[in-house]
Structure formats: structure tokens, C-alpha cells
Design a protein around this nucleic acid. Structure first.
Length: 228
DNA sequence: GCGTGATCATCA
DNA sequence: TGATGATCACGC
């Protein structure tokens, strides 16, 4: 039927990680879940991170780790990205939590976001809801680092958004700010609270936010790799 | 609550 | 119908 998927141990080089990811292309969620003896949910409504966790398992990432990247020894971050039949992203991509306090002295160069995006292993996965989760297939992986233009775009948006946060305007930020990067809620629910800077410089409690890559950015990134 | 993994689902 | 704001699960 299909070859044995790879054993779960951590890769010791970027190339090995990449080859391992490429070897998963074409497999369905059902095949991978069964081979790993993992239960597969009917859909992702209550298991939104399921595909990501499955890929972490197969690629040997440090699951549940709080490290900066999924493969700290390789300096690589793993991102699964849901795509449609045309290869276009179906969702924005969460990058990291937006820091709302303690930002004095933080620059783009030293930012968590830049570090996370320095090297990313993108694994496209069929994500259309019309396809039962079990039948969705893994696509061809892509090892990526931002080029000069992409880095400039990211830096521009990051600086603009961080300015608003530092200046106490976090609650005026909407997902429409930013060209390639956006800030949106990232919380258990809308009642979750975390500390931030208020409009008069005072501490306030507000909804936790996260940085997300807009679809146009990831779409272009995928297209550049697969269409050239 | 925070940070990991993200997608859901409502409404403009 | 697509994007914004909301939400789900888990370990600690």
C-alpha cells in the first residue's frame, strides 16, 4: 500500500529534516495517523493544532517545547500551511505572541518574530473543509528564509505595529494594520486578559494578541518557490 | 495565564 | 464569500 513512514527521531541536519519532510508528500492524514497509531479526529473544530502536531511527530520536533524554534539545534521553525487545490493558503499563519510590555530596547534585529522567521520549513497540507480530514494529503515541503524584500516588508510592519503597542495604542490595532503582518487576538477566548500599556502610559489589562502572516505574503512565498 | 499548535465562524 | 475577531486543546 504505502512505505513505512519515517521513524520519530530528531534530524541532525537541515537537509535531513528537509528530505524527511519531502518524503511525507502525498501521504494522507489517515495513513500517517494510522502508521503512528494516533487517533484521528473527524474534523479540526476541536483539534485545530492536530495536523501541526502530527507533522511535529513525524519530523522529530521537540513537541510541546517552549523553545524559540521547533528545531533549536538547526535553527529551523516548522509551519504547516493549509492550502486549496490551487496551492493558495486558506488561513493566515500564526507566528508568535505579540509582546505588549517589556519592549524597551527591543529592535527588529532582536525581535522574537524575526528570529522565528529566519528559517522556516513550510509544509503545505490540503485544508479545504470539503475534503474529509482523513483524506487530506501532505504537499511538497519548502525550506525558506526571507529575502531582502520580504525582510524589509516584515520589518516595516513590525516596527509600525510595535510603535502602536509601545505608545499605548494596542487596543486601537486591528487586523487591517500592516501590509504583510497583522496583529489579532490569540487567546482562549475574548475574556482572557494580559498586561499592556494604556493610552496614558499606565498598565492596562487587555486581550492577548499574536502576530500573523497575511495570506498574500505566504501565497507569494509559496508561488515564488513552486512556480519559478 | 502563557506559549505551543492553529482553524473556526460570524458578519461586513 | 473572505477576512476579522473569536476560539479550541494541551502542558505547565
Amino acid at each position: 500500500m504505502y512505505n513505512n513512514p519515517l521513524p520519530p527521531n530528531t534530524p541532525d541536519s537541515e537537509q535531513q529534516l528537509y528530505q524527511r519532510a519531502l518524503a511525507l508528500a502525498g501521504y494522507t492524514m489517515k495513513e500517517l495517523a494510522e502508521a503512528a497509531k494516533l487517533p484521528i479526529p473527524e474534523n479540526l473544530k476541536r483539534d485545530k493544532g492536530w495536523v501541526g502536531m502530527l507533522l511535529e511527530y513525524y519530523l522529530g520536533a521537540c513537541a510541546g517545547s517552549k523553545a524559540e524554534q521547533d528545531f533549536p539545534h538547526l535553527g529551523v521553525e516548522l509551519k504547516t500551511i493549509p492550502i486549496n487545490a490551487l496551492g493558495n493558503p486558506l488561513e493566515t499563519t500564526f507566528v508568535c505572541v505579540a509582546p505588549l510590555t517589556g519592549n524597551s530596547g527591543i529592535t527588529w534585529e532582536s525581535s522574537h518574530l524575526r528570529h522565528k522567521l529566519h528559517r522556516v520549513l513550510w509544509v503545505p497540507v490540503e485544508g479545504e473543509r470539503s475534503i474529509p480530514l482523513a483524506q487530506r494529503r501532505i504537499g511538497s515541503a519548502l525550506l525558506w528564509s526571507p529575502d531582502v524584500d520580504e525582510e524589509q516588508q516584515l520589518k516595516h510592519d513590525w516596527e509600525e505595529l510595535m510603535d502602536l503597542i509601545v505608545l499605548g495604542k494596542v487596543e486601537s490595532i486591528t487586523a487591517r494594520h500592516g501590509e504583510v503582518l497583522q496583529i489579532r487576538p490569540k487567546a482562549a477566548n475574548s475574556r482572557a486578559l494580559t498586561e499592556a500599556i494604556g493610552e496614558f502610559g499606565q498598565p492596562i489589562m487587555t486581550l492577548p494578541r499574536g502576530f500573523y502572516l497575511k495570506k498574500a505574503f505566504t501565497r507569494a512565498l509559496l508561488a515564488k518557490h513552486f512556480n519559478l
